[in-house]
Simulated assay, not measured.
Amino acid sequence: MLKRINLEHILFLDIETVPEFATFDELEETTQILYDQKTNYQRKGEYTAEEFYDRAGIWAEFGKIICISVGFFKMQGDVRKFRVTSFHGEEISLLKEFKRMLESHFNRPQHVLCAHNGKEFDFPYIARRMIIRGITLPFKLNLLGKKPWEVPHLDTLELWKFGDYKTFTSLKLLAHVLGIPSPKDDIDGSQVRDVFYEENDIDRIITYCEKDTVTVAQIVLKLRNEALLVEDEVISV
Rank of each mutant, 00 (worst) to 15 (best):
L2C: 05
R4I: 12
L7Q: 08
E8K: 13
T17I: 07
A22E: 14
D25M: 07
E28Y: 13
T30S: 14
I33M: 08
K38V: 06
K38R: 11
T39D: 02
Y41N: 11
G45D: 00
E46Y: 12
A49E: 01
E50W: 03
E51P: 01
F52Q: 02
A60R: 05
E61A: 15
S69K: 05
V70S: 07
V70Y: 03
G71W: 03
F72P: 05
F72K: 13
Q76L: 15
Q76G: 14
D78K: 15
R80V: 14
R80P: 05
K81R: 15
V84F: 11
T85Y: 08
S86E: 10
G89W: 15
L95M: 09
E97P: 11
R100V: 15
R100Q: 15
N107I: 09
P109M: 10
H111I: 00
C114R: 02
A115Y: 00
N117M: 05
K119L: 07
K119T: 07
F121R: 09
F123I: 04
I131D: 11
I132C: 08
R133C: 13
R133T: 04
P138D: 03
F139G: 10
K140I: 02
P148A: 10
V151T: 11
P152K: 01
H153R: 04
L154W: 09
K161D: 08
G163F: 04
T167W: 06
S170P: 00
L174T: 01
L178S: 00
G179N: 05
S190E: 10
D194T: 10
N200C: 12
I202H: 08
Y208T: 06
E210A: 13
T215Y: 00
I219K: 01
I219H: 03
I219A: 06
V220T: 07
L223H: 09
N225P: 05
V230A: 06
E231H: 07
D232V: 03
D232C: 09
